[in-house]
Design a protein around this nucleic acid. Structure first.
Length: 168
DNA sequence: GCCAACGTTGGC
DNA sequence: GCCAACGTTGGC
């Protein structure tokens, strides 16, 4: 069977709730609590084990792309939808026909220097990136390979610059 | 703290 | 099925 080309993704998280550092500590985690159909469909239908994922810190100071993760499980039912005590409990989601589906993601890399949103906005190569569009609220979104590669390049360059500064 | 964008809900 | 009201996200 021909291997499917890897697709690239970005997930948003509020670092006060769950940050890249938490992910690094945990190794991997259920990406739970997503209650948006479009985001769910991406997790259920399009995200495949091994796909690279950028991790973005929203509602934070600073707002930034903080690192890289990867999809580490097949889709399965979000257990928080069944838990009455959970903030994300959804009585409409039944165990035999779950409404909310998630995947696990595993930590790959925490950027030495987070890429802050205003700097990303200045990158002409990222003009079209969904994350940077006004009013873009989708919390799980596709990223093109070109965008993904450019973000990694920026992260490397930023780390290099910092290393130089540390020396001088 | 404000508010634009946008998804969801519910009356009709 | 339409659409106004409402709630949430999330940048600024």
């Amino acid at each position: 069977m021909a291997a499917r080309a890897k697709r690239h993704w970005l997930v948003k998280t509020e670092p006060d709730v769950y940050s890249i550092d938490d992910l690094q500590r945990d190794g991997s985690t259920m990406w739970d609590g997503v209650r948006n159909y479009q985001a769910r469909n991406l997790m259920r239908d399009d995200m495949k084990v091994g796909d690279p994922v950028l991790v973005y810190h929203s509602n934070a100071k600073p707002m930034c792309i903080a690192g890289v993760a990867k999809v580490s499980s097949k889709p399965y039912a979000d257990p928080t939808a069944f838990d009455k005590k959970d903030k994300h409990f959804d009585p409409k989601s039944k165990k035999d026909d779950p409404t909310w589906i998630l995947i696990d993601i595993a930590h790959v890399q925490t950027f030495e220097v987070p890429l802050e949103r205003p700097d990303l906005m200045n990158e002409s190569k990222l003009d079209k990136m969904m994350l940077l569009q006004r009013g873009s609220r989708l919390s799980v979104q596709p990223v093109t390979k070109a965008e993904f590669d450019h973000v990694l390049k920026l992260a490397k360059a930023a780390a290099k610059t910092r290393a130089k500064e540390a020396k001088s």
